[in-house]
Computed example of a mutant assay.
Amino acid sequence: MTSLHSFQARSITGEPVDLSDFEGQVALVVNVASKCGFTPQYEGLESLYNDYKARGFAVLGFPCNQFGGQEPGNSVDILTFCSTVYKASFPLFEKIDVNGAHAHPLYNWLKEEKSGVLGTQAIKWNFTKFLVGRDGQVIQRYGSSTTPDELRADIEKALA
Rank of each mutant, 00 (worst) to 15 (best):
P105D: 09
P105T: 01
L28G: 12
E15D: 11
Q41L: 01
E15R: 14
E23A: 15
V26R: 11
V32W: 00
A27C: 15
K35V: 02
E156N: 14
P105G: 03
K157M: 12
P40F: 01
V32N: 00
E156F: 05
H102L: 13
F57S: 10
A160E: 15
T120F: 14
S20C: 05
V76G: 05
R141Q: 13
K129E: 07
Q70M: 11
G133C: 09
Q140P: 03
G61A: 10
G143M: 08
L92D: 00
V32P: 01
L4G: 00
P40M: 04
F62W: 05
L118F: 14
W109V: 07
S6N: 11
I12E: 00
G68A: 08
K95I: 08
G68Q: 10
E156I: 11
T2H: 14
G116W: 02
I12V: 01
F130P: 06
N108W: 03
S115I: 04
T2W: 06
S144W: 06
R10H: 11
Q25S: 13
H5S: 04
V138E: 11
G69P: 14
S6K: 01
K124P: 00
I78L: 04
Q140T: 12
E150P: 05
G136S: 07
L79H: 09
V117E: 15
L60C: 07
H102R: 15
V59R: 10
Y52E: 08
P91C: 13
G44T: 02
A58K: 15
D97H: 09
Q66T: 02
L4C: 07
F38V: 08
D77G: 00
L159H: 11
D97V: 01
G100P: 06
K53D: 14
E94A: 08
F130W: 11
L106S: 06
C64A: 10
V59S: 10
E156L: 10
L48F: 01
V59K: 07
Q121K: 15
A88I: 03
N65L: 09
Y52G: 13
P40N: 03
R152Y: 07
